[in-house]
Computed example of a mutant assay.
Amino acid sequence: MQIAFESPDQPEVIALIADLDAYQLTLYPPESVYALDLDSLMQPHVKFAVARDTEGAIVGCGAIVLTPEYGEIKRMYVQPAQRGKGLALGVLSLLEQAALDQGCPLLVLETGPAQPEAIGLYQRHGFQRCAPYGGYPDDPLSVFMEKPLPRL
């Protein structure tokens, strides 16, 4: 498996994000899905990570939106058939390293209560629940989490 930063405007990535969107809409109403579109993912302050299998096919992804206040984890997804292989942790670790390299003091994310596996991954990686941040509403279908980062 290979995990690296790549451009999100690849056909395989666009298809993977469409799978993620479809999956999220089976769990939550549209007004409770806070996803970034492709144009947002292409911004210079966003880094997009791609996980590839041994044949080079894209099987997972994640993004981080870097700001002076925090790095926000977005678009974390691994195809169901590829789960349990450590790919999500690998993507998350790469995103965290990008935040550290930029001097971000904090990682934050928003996920949902219908995704206990994701919440468990984030908790095992040092995230704790927190209040809504940024412009997010206090949505009962959102779980907000944060992880302080060490200063380098």
Score class of each variant (00 low, 15 high):
P137K: 10
E72C: 06
Y133T: 07
L27P: 05
E6V: 03
Q128L: 13
E117C: 02
Q24E: 15
L152G: 15
P8N: 12
Y23G: 02
E6K: 12
I73H: 02
H125E: 11
F5V: 09
A18L: 04
P11H: 09
Q123F: 05
Y122W: 07
P44T: 05
G84H: 09
G84L: 09
S142Q: 06
A88Y: 02
I73T: 06
E6C: 12
T67Y: 06
D19G: 07
T54K: 13
H125D: 14
I17R: 13
P8I: 02
V78N: 01
F144A: 03
P11A: 15
P150W: 08
M76Q: 04
I73G: 00
A35P: 01
Q102A: 15
A35Y: 02
Y122R: 01
G103N: 12
I64A: 01
G112Q: 08
V65S: 04
D37E: 13
R52Y: 04
L16Q: 08
V50S: 00
P68S: 12
G112M: 02
K74Q: 07
L16T: 06
A118I: 02
Q123H: 13
Q43N: 11
F144L: 05
E55L: 13
G90A: 09
I14E: 14
L149S: 10
A81I: 08
D9G: 07
P148L: 08
P44Y: 07
V50E: 02
L20M: 15
S93Q: 14
A63R: 03
G56R: 11
L149N: 06
V65K: 07
